[in-house]
Amino acid sequence: MIMEESIAAAMDHSELHLVNDLAQLPLMTQWVEEIGERAQLAPGELFNLTLVIEEVVVNVMNYAYGDRTGMPVDLCADFTASGLVVTLSDHGMPFDPTAAQEPDLDLPVEERPIGGLGIMLVNKLTRRVEYARQDDMNVLTLYF
């Protein structure tokens, strides 16, 4: 019985440990496809999950650590009764993406800023996003 419970727990949780190197993104895509399969997501839901996780991971890889390389970017997924919950953690400088301002969509194309689109997609394609600074880590929790 204990063994069955621990197998069940392992099935409900998955982790991926990356470093801040964009060359590792294919590993992230593969991991997201695996958790999408386990959560039995529809193709559109898998697209959104992949998009949101790419946006937040790329942001951390590009900006959290400045010039420091080989720094940890950790993901974990939990399959809960109310849906999939993905947590992204890094030890970089404090940054709360939920407090970032979304770009003005009414600007003409010539004046459109190049940045800020990622957080807009994250906010629209998740049920909820929570940020916490815990033990010198940025912890971003995404509820799908």
Binding site: F47, T50, I114, G115
Partner: peptide, 19 residues
């Protein structure tokens, strides 16, 4: 099959160039 904001940024650059 898929596009993220990195791809959108490049399409926006192309759009600005056409203008």
């Amino acid at each position: 099959e898929f596009i993220s904001s990195s791809g959108l940024r490049l399409l926006l650059m192309l759009r600005k160039q056409t203008i």
